[in-house]
């Protein structure tokens, strides 16, 4: 059985224009051999969920530095679930207080990476958690 190519989407929901981190991650995923759909800043959760389905990605990485993650991250998970796409893994990163972790995990976010997380650790998490065989 041939290996599947891992496809990921990197997106920034909400009113947050700080995309340095998201761009670095996109580049890092590319170098890890993934196909990366980069969709940029200022997106609604609706746009993100629709794009994730159209692109048939394995994983959506959300980046948020504005503090709105409590609203925006769970909304993406919920929209994917409604569209029968809950098999798409959602992870998040950015300025996220530890106090919010439980709430986000319960909402269906599978992993959270905050400042200090290494690029390698994020790639490794994806490799370990996304199956490349059908």
């Amino acid at each position: 059985m041939p290996d599947r190519k891992i496809r990921v989407m990197v997106a920034k929901p909400g009113l947050d224009g700080h995309d340095r981190g998201a761009r670095i991650l996109a580049r890092c995923f590319r170098d890890a051999g993934f196909e990366v759909i980069y969709t940029g800043c200022h997106q609604t959760p609706e746009q993100i969920a629709a794009a994730a389905i159209q692109e048939d990605v394995d994983l959506v990485g959300l980046s948020c530095l504005s503090g709105a993650h409590r609203l925006l991250f769970p909304r993406v998970v919920e929209l994917l679930r409604k569209k029968d796409a809950s098999d798409i893994t959602v992870i998040g990163g950015g300025i996220i207080p530890e106090a919010d972790f439980t709430m986000l995990y319960e909402a269906g976010i599978k992993a959270i990476f905050t400042p200090g997380a290494t690029l390698d650790s994020i790639v490794e998490w994806i490799r370990n958690n996304i199956k490349t065989h059908d």
């Binding site: 580049r27 590319r30 990366v36 759909i37 980069y38 969709t39 609706e46 629709a50 159209q54």
Partner: peptide, 27 residues
């Protein structure tokens, strides 16, 4: 590396939610 950045969608975001439009990136 076999990896790719697929960035064309960025220019077409306004159509993301239109159900009459299906955009798919290919490497």
């Amino acid at each position: 590396t076999g990896g790719a950045i697929l960035g064309d969608r960025v220019r077409m975001l306004r159509h993301a939610e239109d159900e009459g439009v299906f955009i798919r990136s290919l490497a």
